[in-house]
Structure formats: C-alpha cells, structure tokens
C-alpha cells in the first residue's frame, strides 16, 4: 500500500534520512522505533507528504507523492488520518468543531449527521459528552483521544500516530495503547505508530522497524526485537546507553 524507496533528507549539515526503504502493507500494524532525534517523525512527515524529500520516492497505492504539489497531495491525504505528538487540536475551536472539521468543510453532510458522527467518534475514544469543551480545558491524554477522534471520523485507510504516549503517565499510556489496538481492529485500518516507548511497541505492533543512522536498520516482530542479540537493537530495546556515544 505504501512503499518508501531510498528516501533521503538533509537539514543543514545533518543527514536525517539516508536512504530509507520501507514497505507498509494494507491492514498491518507497524511500529517504527528509533532514538530521539533519529528522524522517525521526519520519516512520518515524508510518508504523509508534509515534507518534501531531497531524493527518493514515497509510493501510495503506486502513486509517487514525493513531488506532488500541495493541492494534489490533499486528495492523497484523504486516505490518511494522523494523531500528532501534541495532538495539534485547533485551540480556537471546540472539541466538536475540531472533530467535525473535515465533515463540515465537505458541505455534503447535514448538521444532524455531523453531530451523530462526532458523538460516535467520541464514543469510540471513550470521551463522550465533551463536545462543547475547548482543547485548553482537556488533559494531555484527553487531547490525544480527541485528536484520534478527529483523525478517524472520516474513515481513513491508514492512521499514523506520532509518539502517542509521549508525555503521558504509564496508566494513561497503557489506555492509549489499548485504544490504538481497538481502533485498528474495529475500523480495520492500517496502523503506523512512531514511538520509543518499548511497552507501547509490544502492545501495539505486529511488526516493528527500527530506524538507525537514517536507515531502517532491522525489522521483525516485537518478540524478535526484544530477543535480538544485535548490540544496537539490544541496547535500544533495553534502554542501555553506550558510553562512547553522545546520548543527548
């Protein structure tokens, strides 16, 4: 469904992506792991078409989106839903207006239908009755749930999660992981999660790809990665720093 070929991106002196090759199959649940600042979010932004690459291809259903203009990309992005690390809710709008954003702009839905679908989306993320609240009135976990409701209301084919548990306590993180699994099963969507949270990786992923030094270093099931004897993988999944390397 999505294929990334030899993707490269440089910011100033730093080569962030250095020939990434990755395939995301339909209906799979893929987790991309890697060090902080290692280019995971940059890779995600390339896949969604938010950032143009220096070179390489991003094929979505066979169409290379890497060099499409913004208007052409809008149609491709209709297939995607994305939950941002900060949730990125529109702070001038209410929760209901945030979730209904896409439907309201399509102009072919009645207000009753929009209200019903917003309520359904909120029900799915276990946040009923918060339609009239503003994002500023919500906690971090609640914002992520509303962000997810906004991302799934128009039934995308692929849902991307950019570090969905970052900044949340372990209990809320676990509930978000369970929510991701439930959304994936109920909506039958392809799920791509970016994280460096190993608990989250094991809870959500059916396949895991590790980004290291700008490339996909290895991939496999969560169990395979947790049991890996490769020093790079092993150190990462166990959270052991290398004294020879800068870890900040």
């Amino acid at each position: 469904m999505i294929e990334v070929r030899q993707l490269r991106k440089r910011f100033g002196d730093q080569q962030v992506l250095d020939g990434v090759d990755l395939t995301i199959e339909k209906d799979e649940s893929l987790v991309i792991i890697g060090r902080s600042g290692g280019g995971k979010s940059v890779l995600l932004k390339h896949i969604v078409g938010l950032t143009p690459p220096d070179s390489g291809q991003v094929l979505v259903d066979g169409q290379d989106i890497a060099h499409l203009n913004e208007r052409a990309l809008l149609a491709v992005r209709r297939k995607f839903g994305m939950l941002f690390q900060s949730a990125a809710l529109f702070d001038s709008l209410t929760v209901e207006e945030n979730i209904a954003f896409v439907l309201s702009r399509e102009r072919n839905h009645t207000p009753e239908e929009i209200s019903r679908r917003v309520a359904e989306a909120l029900e799915m993320v276990e946040m009923p009755g918060v339609q009239k609240k503003k994002p500023a009135e919500l906690s971090g976990g609640m914002r992520k749930r509303v962000g997810l409701a906004r991302a799934i209301i128009y039934r995308p084919e692929v849902v991307f999660y950019d570090e969905p548990t970052t900044g949340l306590d372990p209990v809320v993180s676990d509930s978000i992981d369970k929510l991701i699994v439930r959304v994936c099963e109920r909506l039958k969507v392809t799920t791509v999660v970016i994280t460096h949270d190993m608990r989250s990786m094991q809870a959500v992923g059916r396949r895991v790809a590790m980004l290291h030094h700008g490339r996909i270093y290895t991939s496999g099931t969560p169990v395979e990665l947790m049991a890996s004897t490769d020093p790079v993988v092993s150190r990462f999944v166990r959270g052991i720093s290398d004294e020879k390397e800068h870890t900040f």
Binding site: K45, V48, L50, E70, R71, L73, L74, A75, R77, R78, F80, G81, M82, F84, Q85, S86, A88, L89, F90, D91, F101, V102, R105, R150, A151
Partner: peptide
Amino acid sequence: TMRVTEQIDALRTLATH
C-alpha cells in the same frame, strides 16, 4: 502559533489547504 504547535500541519493532514 498555529505553525509552531503543528496546527497548520494538522490542517494539511485533514486535506485542507
């Protein structure tokens, strides 16, 4: 503010220019 809080990127992912 919308740009630095990724709200403009969110708009783009919601198929809105």
